[in-house]
Design a protein around this nucleic acid. Structure first.
Length: 740
DNA sequence: TCTCACACCTTTGAAGTGG
DNA sequence: CCACTTCAAAGGTGTGAGA
């Protein structure tokens, strides 16, 4: 299976090359040692810690740090996948990821999506949902998501727009959210929409729930990863195919800044229904008012043409056609929904109400709506509806226009008709003057948005757990959408546009990995994964049961459902982290971390914390930011195929050892991994500025030059607050270990 | 800019009911 | 037993006051 957009795999890369930084060099990337955090030897860890706190690393803003977006499966220490852009595997090409809630995301993105983060954690809305295809049906995959800084800036909301307000604050600890169903077969993944709606965001750096920690007023980019692995234990040695949807970019806030975003969320998030028009008592009214507006927009076309005719004086046209259309537009929705307020406000009413939002009109609408909510008035309502239809037909006959042109008299006729039907002529009657016309025009735009919203609501809650909600929403909005799609073809979107994302958007976000791996690669990975880990037993913090009991109750069921065992690890910063068994331990009870990130399960339990690796994430994010224009904007996002979601190429060749290259036979060397891990420890010691003895136990060939030392020291000076503290703690822990 | 209590809402699951 | 309904608790929202 090949997605149309990936039929030319080389295109995106070509585009990337055309946008790459002037000093970008493929060769330099390939030859530079790459730092892959995460696999640390146990002896490098503080007591009880899953991973050492490493110092800060150069950010991508560092001119020496370049990120090769299409060469991400670079030099994993000890694993050197043979991979070129010309050697892509068919399997990779087949994988297609579509953002399921694309329309909604785009709607938010237009306004500068804001995501509220709270201390207790907030879900993302819109939620992150993808549909994956092209997976190997029988193979098992782990699906993950993380959120990385989109740039290195802090933002402020000024003059109704987001502006850069300086340099970004130090990044929060990076955590990765593993989809609770992982690992799962490709077939199972492809059967459903993969939803990450349970992922929660927080600004609480001490969060122990495993929520994703973000900085307020910073821009972030969610990322989706697919890892072919049948065991989470193998994640560290597995390739990450990473997908980035630009429209999911957002700014984290503790309080909404942009009213439009707020309103959009209220309009779409079922949990915020209470804020739609003053709460429950008014919801029905709101809905009806919205319908009013929609119908007004339906009629707007007629009025528009009428206005045109006004200026041209009366011309004999085939008014019958127009009027018939008019009748249809007004009658159809109502005939089928007698319970709807029969008065449902003529467009004119809406016009006037919308013009200045006059209290008077709105009050009358309220009266109408509320009064017609009563069941005993249904019949009256229906009758009134018939009267209106008849009146419209009379109006049609009365209009002597043709070719769809209506004159002012026709307009006035309409006014009268609707006023008549509403019995509100004295208050609602309006001349269809130019002002009204302009207001109508504006309202038409609003209604288009509403239509989109309705559509999005249907789409957004169309999957799995939210199907019911979808149904409810759909039932509420079907009338609106249907009436719109049936009428005013000139102003309504194309039929496909109201049929949901998948129909409207074949979603050309087809992805393919940036490159292949060697055919033997996966087996190599598995081979590696089966090797004993590099950690020493006994590193897991004892006394886990008690700690587990102290976890929030909500976490336990999920934890138990997801993992047979759970343990807690003490993070270097003193955080107690809930560690699902299969995340933290191998058969020997050895803890490990995947690339220094914290992994979170269904409820977001933290696994391992490694705040020091924030910059790696930042680097990746920043990098993704700079090449985004080359790749993302091309609508041909390519999967980033690599081992680590946060590869951090360092130009300083002394930073890390790349370990022993993979042997020709494909067997990787444990020593090489150890070597790389040793390199990490070296970095930790070096850049922490502590004169710690090198902890690397395996190889002494890890070169740490003075220049690198100084570089890191200078970088470290930039690190502030908590990170410094964490580093000190880590350094202290490392010192202890070293002393041992 | 952030935190918190609050009202309002949806979701969830247990309990009850009837076939 | 199963399907369905009812109900209460839990949890997800934005708001607005106060820090």
């Amino acid at each position: 299976m090949k997605h149309p957009m990936v039929s030319e795999p080389g295109m995106a890369y070509t585009q990337f090359l055309s946008h790459r930084p002037s000093d970008f060099s493929v060769n330099s990337i390939l030859t530079q040692p790459q730092f892959f955090p995460g696999i640390l030897p146990a002896h490098a860890l503080p007591n009880g810690a899953g991973i050492a706190t490493l110092p800060m690393f150069p950010k991508l803003t560092d001119p020496h740090c370049h990120y090769a977006p299409d060469l991400l499966s670079v030099h994993q220490p000890g694993i050197r996948p043979v991979r070129t852009l010309d050697n892509q595997s068919d399997e990779d090409e087949n994988i297609v990821v579509n953002l399921e809630t694309k329309d909604l995301w785009e709607e938010f993105h237009k306004r500068g999506t804001e995501m509220v983060i709270t201390k207790s954690g907030r879900r993302m809305f819109p939620s992150y949902k993808v549909r994956v295809s092209g997976l190997d049906k029988k193979a098992k995959y782990i699906l993950l998501m993380d959120i990385v800084a989109a740039d290195d800036c802090r933002y402020k909301f000024h003059n109704s727009r987001w502006m850069v307000a300086g340099k970004a604050d130090p990044e929060m600890p990076k955590r990765m959210y593993i989809h609770p169903d992982s690992p799962c077969t490709g077939e199972q993944w492809m059967q459903k929409v993969v939803s990450f709606h349970k992922l929660k965001l927080t600004n609480n750096i001490s969060d122990k729930h495993g929520f994703t920690i973000l900085n307020s007023m910073h821009k972030y980019q969610p990322r989706f990863h697919i890892v072919k692995a049948n065991d989470i234990l193998k994640l560290p040695w597995s390739q990450f195919r990473t997908y980035v949807f630009k429209e999911t970019e957002f700014i984290a806030v503790t309080a909404y800044q942009n009213e439009k975003v707020t309103q959009l969320k209220i309009d779409h998030n079922p949990f915020a229904k209470g804020f739609r028009e003053n709460g429950a008592g008014k919801r029905e009214k709101t809905r009806k008012m919205q319908q009013t507006s929609l119908e007004a927009s339906e009629h707007r076309t007629q009025i528009e043409s009428t206005m045109n005719s006004c200026n041209e004086a009366s011309k004999h046209t085939d008014q019958a056609e127009v009027s018939t259309s008019s009748i249809k537009q007004y009658s159809e929705p109502r005939v089928g929904h007698v319970r709807e307020p029969p008065v449902v406000l003529s467009p004119l009413k809406s016009v006037s109400a919308e013009a200045n939002s006059t209290t008077r009109i709105e009050e009358e609408i309220d009266v109408d709506v509320e009064s017609n909510d009563r069941d005993d008035e249904e019949e009256t309502a229906a009758n009134e509806l018939k009267l209106r239809i008849a009146a419209l037909e009379e109006a049609k006959d009365a209009m002597g226009e043709k070719d769809g042109d209506e004159n002012s008299s026709a307009d006035e006729e309409d006014n009268d008709i609707f006023d008549k039907s509403l019995n509100n002529s004295s208050t609602i009657e309006r001349q269809c003057n130019e002002d009204d016309y302009m207001q109508l025009h504006h309202q038409q735009e609003d209604n288009k948005v509403r239509k989109t919203n309705s559509k999005n609501e249907q789409t957004n809650y169309s999957d799995s757990e939210e199907d019911e909600e979808s149904t409810k929403y759909e039932s509420r909005n079907t009338k609106l959408v249907t009436s719109l799609s049936k009428s005013s073809s000139s102003s309504s979107p194309s039929p496909s546009s109201s049929s949901g994302i998948t129909v409207q958007h074949p979603t050309p976000l087809a992805f393919q990995p940036a490159g292949p791996i060697s055919p033997s690669h996966h087996s190599q990975l598995h081979h590696l994964a089966q090797q004993p880990f590099l950690f020493y037993p006994g590193q897991v913090m004892p006394g886990l049961p008690n700690a587990v009991q102290s976890l929030p109750a909500a976490m336990l069921p999920v934890a138990s459902a997801t993992t047979a065992h759970a343990q807690l690890l003490q993070s270097p910063s003193g955080h107690t982290c809930f560690v699902p068994h299969h995340f933290s331990l191998n058969a020997q009870g050895i803890p490990y971390s995947l690339n220094g990130q914290v992994f979170a399960g269904s409820q977001g339990y933290a696994v391992i914390s490694n705040p020091a690796l924030n910059n790696a994430a930042a680097a990746a994010a920043a990098a993704s930011n700079y090449y985004r224009g080359a790749i993302l904007s091309s609508q041909q996002n390519r999967a980033r195929l690599r081992f680590s979601p946060y590869p951090l190429p360092l130009t300083s060749t002394t930073m890390v050892t790349t370990g022993t290259p993979l042997s020709a036979s494909g067997h990787s060397s444990i020593d090489s991994l150890q070597s790389s891990a040793a390199g990490l420890v070296t970095i930790a010691n070096t850049s922490a500025g502590a004169s710690l003895p090198q902890v690397s136990p395996v190889r002494d060939n890890t070169p740490v030059t003075t220049s690198a030392h100084n570089e890191l020291q200078s970088i470290q000076k930039l690190v502030s607050g908590l990170e410094q503290q964490q580093e000190k703690m880590a350094a202290g822990s490392l010192t202890k270990l070293s002393d041992k």
